[in-house]
Computed example of a mutant assay.
Amino acid sequence: MRWQLNHRFSSAAGVCGWSYWLDTFNIGYGPVAADAFLGEPTVLVDERGPLR
């Protein structure tokens, strides 16, 4: 499974610009082959939102 989500943050005072990043987690449960994460995932959970 591959799970993706993104984030957008600004400084507390609002003086600096925005920071963006993407988190990607590759998750396997139980015994998996050594090359399990080298190809396309069997399940993709895309929770990326608009960054404006």
Rank of each mutant, 00 (worst) to 15 (best):
Q4P: 00
D23F: 10
L51F: 13
V32D: 01
L5F: 14
L51I: 14
W3I: 15
R8K: 08
E47P: 00
V45Y: 00
V32I: 15
L5I: 13
T42A: 12
G28W: 06
G49K: 14
R2A: 11
A36I: 13
S11G: 04
A13T: 15
Y29D: 11
L44Q: 09
G28H: 07
L5R: 13
L51K: 04
L38H: 12
F37C: 02
D46R: 01
E40C: 08
H7G: 03
A33M: 07
G30W: 13
E47F: 06
I27L: 09
E47W: 08
W3E: 13
E47S: 03
L44R: 04
W3C: 07
C16Q: 15
D35Y: 07
N6V: 13
R52K: 08
N26A: 15
L51E: 06
R2T: 10
D35V: 09
S10T: 15
W21E: 04
H7K: 12
S19K: 10
W18V: 13
Y20S: 05
T42N: 09
A12V: 15
F37A: 05
A34K: 05
E40W: 04
R48Y: 03
A34Q: 09
G49H: 12
G17P: 03
R48T: 12
G49D: 06
G49I: 14
P50H: 13
E40N: 08
L51G: 03
V32P: 00
D23Y: 11
D23V: 07
V45K: 01
P41F: 10
R48I: 06
S19I: 15
D23H: 12
R8D: 09
G39L: 14
F9T: 05
R8P: 01
F37K: 02
Q4G: 02
A12T: 09
G30N: 06
T42D: 14
T24Q: 04
N26I: 14
A34W: 04
N26V: 10
W3F: 09
P31A: 15
V15P: 00
S11H: 03
R48V: 15
G14L: 04
S11F: 02
A33G: 09
P50S: 10
M1T: 11
C16M: 14
L44S: 02
L51W: 15
A12D: 11
R8C: 05
F9C: 03
S10L: 07
L44M: 09
L22S: 03
V45F: 00
P31I: 15
F25K: 04
C16V: 14
G17T: 05
S11Q: 08
L51N: 07
A36P: 04
G17L: 06
M1G: 07
W21C: 03
N26W: 11
W21H: 06
L5A: 07
L5K: 07
S19L: 11
P41I: 08
E40Y: 06
D46T: 08
N6T: 11
F25W: 08
W3A: 10
F9A: 04
R8L: 11
S10R: 07
G49T: 15
A36N: 04
N26K: 14
W21V: 01
G39M: 03
A34R: 03
F9S: 00
G28K: 07
A13E: 11
G39P: 05
V32S: 03
Q4T: 12
A33I: 12
R52F: 05
